[in-house]
Nucleic acid binder design. Sequence first.
DNA 1: GTTGGAGTTGAACGATCGTTCGAAAGCGAG
DNA 2: CTCGCTTTCGAACGATCGTTCAACTCCAAC
Lengths: 207, 207
Amino acid sequence: MAGPTRDQKLETLLSAAAKVFAERGYHETSMRDLARASGVSLAGVYYYVQSKDELLYLIQTRNFEAVIAGMRRALQGVTDPIERIGRFIDNHLDYFAAHMAEMKVLSHEAGALSGEYLQKVNDMKREYTRALMDVLADVERAHGPAHLNRRVAAYSLFGMMNWIYNWYDPLGDVGVEMLSQNVCHLFLGGYVGLPVSDAALPRSSAG
Amino acid sequence: MAGPTRDQKLETLLSAAAKVFAERGYHETSMRDLARASGVSLAGVYYYVQSKDELLYLIQTRNFEAVIAGMRRALQGVTDPIERIGRFIDNHLDYFAAHMAEMKVLSHEAGALSGEYLQKVNDMKREYTRALMDVLADVERAHGPAHLNRRVAAYSLFGMMNWIYNWYDPLGDVGVEMLSQNVCHLFLGGYVGLPVSDAALPRSSAG
DNA sequence: GTTGGAGTTGAACGATCGTTCGAAAGCGAG
DNA sequence: CTCGCTTTCGAACGATCGTTCAACTCCAAC
């Protein structure tokens, strides 16, 4: 029965920090709050992390990396553009709903970083946005040019999906599957001007 | 040539504060920053405002009141449910684009208030959300039940519209009219399963 | 039993925070 | 000029912030 490794303790710290950041906000949260929430002393936090900034940076990048990796996995081998969009949305909302605190910190605390940290996160953001725009381009190639500006459509979709930390409760009466299906319907119905049959919508075959 | 009245100076202070809050964030901004940005001394700020909290509260309520008032004006006399939605979206985005800093503070700094201030703002939020939900109910009465959860649809629309402070530049190549039309298309096409003719979309007849 | 590194801590550092207050400055009315 | 009221300010308050550091405990290795 070996005790928790260093990485595991860091993970625990990040998890606790994400929860507090999500509740009180990054700048409103003190390192003393984090120490209390994670069960170590104030100085102890600095054994696992170099600074408060790095703490936020680690939360953002680790989860963003997971979202991007899941997206690649979900899109792999899928050729139908409509279904690719569905998978993209599905992956995003599934991960968001399963990691509400972390994703709220990623979405809401975007401007709290600076310097190299900010640059790295912005690079990931650019990559992820590019991926969605590429899928949208695929759709237009297959179904003819949309009567919507592609960039507006992309950021509108991100708006729908990233805004949910303001209202959505994964444990409420709206399940994640319903949420995802609704967002798919809403976006696809508006972007490709056709009513989308329910059968065309993917449901997470790969958990 | 009477000097600026007290209310005008308060308005100037609120405007400067909104700009700084939007750039640096509420908690990241110090009262000394605000004093510098608005051209008065640190103590001078407190002649116009009781606290930093009240400053944020005033920015949020004054602009939210303007949005709600504009919405009532835009919906007045309009009976077609589809056009009512268009007017709702139009009003929201027009005001947002014209007051980016203030609306970013309203959207992004929602959790920074507490106590009575928070309650008042939340009341307005509930009122505004209810107004949208009512319009959506009208649409369903006229066009049959949507295949979307009404609450999900409403918050998705709010997500699209309120997320724009993360990417939209009113002076860029996407004009406010185009933005508003695109969001209308996107939402209406997805909510009522029909392609929406461009003619059905309202363009701010009442400036 | 002794050594040495990993893990943890209490106490303190200087800096900055929101807010207060007494005094001074500006200024129309008498 | 002088009074009274509004407006402005420098200076300071206590509190809290992120961070540091020397000292301590713990435990496997020798």
